[in-house]
């Protein structure tokens, strides 16, 4: 699997240089380049991952649901084990690929640590209340033509577009 990325940089996390302003979001960020080939190929890998989880385990590859299920104390132990393996695979694979010599995309954060904490709470809370995230609703749900997932994806996309517009352009 040749990982050819358009950007050849290190994965050392870089922080935005500008001082936080407005709602605490740094407005300055490095201009990212359009990566249609790598992004399409990455999407295909995600689709294969979803296919494997359905074909092998009969499950929707929804990251938020699977991660939240790890915190369930009254679930089945066997469910817990495959969920943990799935999450471990997601976490371990990118660093292992980097060690193996694959070039990883640069990582640039757009918000300081306290704001990332706030964003994390919103993402965790919202995905459980809404029953899914970009993977469960956005990829698997739309692939199944689920009306709930199509609506949820439309809503969180609009909310994401709106939030970035307000943070970057409204103030």
């Amino acid at each position: 699997m040749p990982v050819t990325h358009d950007k050849v940089e290190t994965l050392e996390p870089s922080r935005t240089g500008n001082a936080p302003s407005g709602a605490g979001i740094a407005k300055g960020y490095s201009v990212e380049h359009f990566t249609p080939i790598a992004s399409l190929a990455g999407g295909v890998l995600i689709g294969l991952a979803a296919t494997f989880l359905m074909g092998l385990n009969g499950r929707i590859a929804g990251v938020s649901g699977i991660a939240a299920g790890l915190m369930s104390l009254h679930g089945h132990a066997t469910d817990w084990a495959w969920r943990l393996a799935f999450v471990a695979g997601i976490i371990a694979t990118p660093p292992l690929l980097k060690i193996a010599g694959f070039v990883m995309p640069p990582v640039t954060f757009v918000a300081p640590i306290p704001v990332m904490g706030m964003a994390g709470v919103l993402v965790g809370f919202g995905t459980v209340v809404g029953g899914g995230c970009t993977s469960g609703h956005g990829v698997c749900g739309i692939a199944r033509l689920s009306m709930r997932s199509i609506v949820a994806t439309t809503v969180f996309m609009i909310a994401g577009f709106g939030t970035v517009f307000l943070l970057r352009h409204a103030f």
Partner: peptide, 17 residues
């Protein structure tokens, strides 16, 4: 839920995966 998720996604640039 989708609205709250989208808000956090736009702020932090991360979804769960």
């Amino acid at each position: 839920g989708a609205t709250i998720f989208g808000l956090g996604w736009g702020i932090g640039g991360y979804c769960p995966g």
